Simulated scan of single mutants.
Amino acid sequence: MSEPAVAAPLPAGRREQTKAANRAAILRAAGEVFADIGYDAAGVRDIVRRTGLASGTFYNYFPDKESVFRALLEESAIEARARVRAARRSAGSLEQFVHGAYLAYFRFLAEDRPTFELIRRNASTIRTMFDEPQLGAGMEELRDDLHAAADGGTLPELDIEYLAAAMVGAAFEIGVRMVERHPPDVEGAGAFASALFLGGIERLGAA
């Protein structure tokens, strides 16, 4: 009797492509599930059912639903941070620094549909993860840029820690309200947040 055929192992390049495709499929499916039924109601089985992968494949990439949720947030945060920081660094005035950054963030939410739906359905869960490294990195970058603006004379002398915390918190909460509107009012959200902080900065700077 002949020995059963054994499948040849995939070349290293193909293996990496397959791993990347599987991970992307899991993230895409997880984003859909979390947007449809919410983080609390979702389970790993719900995610796997939408991937077409074997049930055990999920655990080759993520240990649980929390880790895949965090991965989704991290990927979105990286893109959002890049857009916001580019807007701040291209600003020629305090108004452009504040307004440009808020517009960049709110436009990202409106344009990136998976992130839009993830936040719309899971805002309360996301709030508990603000201390995560990728989410916290945005706060650190804002603090650095505020210090640079103060050193350059664009920003009056203020408590940078308080200001950064307030600006990040307002961006998230206004963004949550914005994605609940139909259609999302990007310009209105940007104008409101900018006026709020520009007025506050002016008043605090004059105190």
Rank of each mutant, 00 (worst) to 15 (best):
S76Y: 05
R181W: 03
A5W: 14
T115N: 07
S124K: 15
E74L: 01
R89V: 05
F192K: 00
L204E: 09
E3M: 12
G190W: 01
A166Y: 05
L158D: 08
S2Y: 06
H147W: 07
V84N: 07
G152D: 13
R70P: 02
V48K: 07
L27S: 00
E132R: 03
F69H: 08
V176D: 06
N22R: 12
A206L: 02
D151L: 09
A30V: 03
G56T: 06
P9S: 15
P156V: 06
V176W: 06
D131A: 15
H182K: 08
P9D: 14
V168P: 02
D64Y: 12
G175R: 07
L163H: 10
A20M: 13
V168L: 08
L163F: 07
A24F: 03
H147I: 10
D36Q: 13
V176N: 09
F69G: 06
L10N: 08
R28T: 12
P63A: 10
R107Q: 14
A54P: 05
V179L: 00
G169V: 00
I174N: 01
E111R: 13
K19Y: 08
F34S: 02
I78C: 04
G152V: 12
A7S: 10
R83V: 06
A12D: 14
K65D: 11
L135D: 04
I126V: 13
P63D: 09
E75Q: 14
A54L: 14
A104N: 11
R70W: 04
E16D: 14
A164I: 00
Y59V: 00
A166M: 11
L146Q: 03
D151C: 02
M129A: 09
G205L: 04
Y162F: 15
G188N: 05
A20Q: 15
F97D: 14
R143I: 01
P183F: 03
G38F: 11
A82Y: 04
Q17V: 11
L142E: 06
L146F: 05
